[in-house]
Design a protein around this nucleic acid. Structure first.
Lengths: 233, 233
DNA sequence: TCGGGCCTCACTATTTTTGGGGAGTGGAAT
DNA sequence: ATTCCACTCCCCAAAAATAGTGAGGCCCGA
């Protein structure tokens, strides 16, 4: 375990990650171990031990928007056992059946991870076993899993710095104010009034923010500011 | 160490955190150990071993926007040694002098942590010693520090009850489509075109979504859908 | 079977937002 | 000391979004 952690910390090439995933899977004696980057611009990257066919199928079906693991972890900080997620919707059940049919285990444990600019990723281990066995496994390995998740994400960020969409030009304080107030529903007039500036001036901020965020309109700018964590509502 | 980690994981009251900070400080034999929540809407919460006067001074001076540790970690995922940050600006140097005068060590190591909805926090250890000693310390404790940072943030989020006040009314598939496309910058015309429906129909979806989300305009609706995790961009 | 949510389309009129200019201050960094 | 950036203000015309009301078909669960 120690050795693998060390290797993971020191990994200096992306290609190693796949191998490390497999090594870790064997160390933990689980069926699958996956790191999955869910970048805010829709791009995805992953490495792990899932069947490539399943991965492609996942992408084709746009399961990202259905997968209860993703939607559930998106609002969560704690690592979570799949059993505690909401599988009640019809789409979720269909997804679950499809996943199990494709070799994904009936048990799973996922660690959400977040980086700068709203980057979001998941680290998951999955296995086929009964609840008690799985509970023992997660109980005794949760700390290592958190650390591994951390290191995987660290590597992903190291190797793909350009993957972070435009390198997040920081918004000026006024621009942050403007975006924040727009995000809580104020109209331009209200925002200008709240900030005690003319609506014309406000417009300059909104345009500047739009430009910095590479957004095509105000709504887009607010959405980006939000998903990059530049503003909080 | 193990025992403290256990206690940290199990802590069920906010008051314990202060005590755990002090215990951890003694375990690590460092001058200070601080967890600092910096939700970017200005709210702050912290617990740790800094002199309360310094904390108050920090807040009064609005050092949050100056502190190189905060601004430096904000765009970073890796834990970082303070020496590697940018202390060159005039404001940063003034801050540094002020900090050291107030008992903050000349060495420091900070772990950035992020939660859902752009939540951001820092976990920091600080000490007074020479570079070599500090390098040895950080080298041998970095994993524990990451874990502790994680658990501190976990507790901070647990104790923060004001999350998702409104029960998220589910959006219909079409409404999700509309919100998603709007969030990635499409205009109404483009969205309607993409979904192959008339713009009139689209409007009905947007209004329905606005209503369900209790939003006052489209931008607001998209912002809410995003921060409630109803859509992923 | 019946109500209810969902999907689809239409009209008119009004209000808001946007895109393109230009211009002056002050502070901070090189 | 000059340059860069943040902040503030202004005009105008075109494009987009909003408010109100309306209607028909579909599928699901009570």
């Amino acid at each position: 375990m120690e050795a693998i952690l060390e290797e993971l910390e020191q990994a200096s090439e992306l290609e190693n990650m796949q191998g490390i995933s497999e090594a870790l899977r064997d160390v933990f004696k689980v069926d699958h171990l996956v790191y999955h980057w869910v970048s805010s611009n829709g791009e995805q990257y992953g490495c792990g031990t899932y069947d490539p066919e399943w991965v492609q199928h996942y992408l084709d079906k746009d399961y990202l928007r259905v997968d209860p693991v993703v939607v559930g972890c998106y609002q969560r900080f704690h690592p979570v056992d799949w059993k505690r997620l909401d599988w009640s919707s019809k789409a979720a059940r269909a997804f679950q059946a499809d996943a199990i049919a494709n070799g994904v285990g009936n048990q799973g444990y996922s660690v959400p991870i977040r980086g700068p600019n709203g980057q979001f990723a998941l680290f998951t281990v999955s296995h086929n076993c009964d609840d008690a066995t799985w509970a023992r496994f997660t109980e005794s390995n949760r700390r290592d899993l958190i650390l591994i998740a951390h290191y995987f994400n660290q590597k992903a960020l190291d190797f793909e710095p350009e993957r972070a969409p435009e390198p997040a030009q920081p918004l000026s304080p006024r621009e942050v104010d403007a975006m924040t107030l727009l995000a809580i529903g104020y109209s331009r007039a209200q925002v200008a009034d709240t900030l005690s500036i003319s609506e014309h001036t406000l417009r300059v901020y909104i345009e500047a923010a739009r430009f910095k965020l590479g957004a095509m309109n105000t709504t887009h700018a607010v959405a980006r500011a939000l998903s990059r964590g530049l503003i909080v509502v």
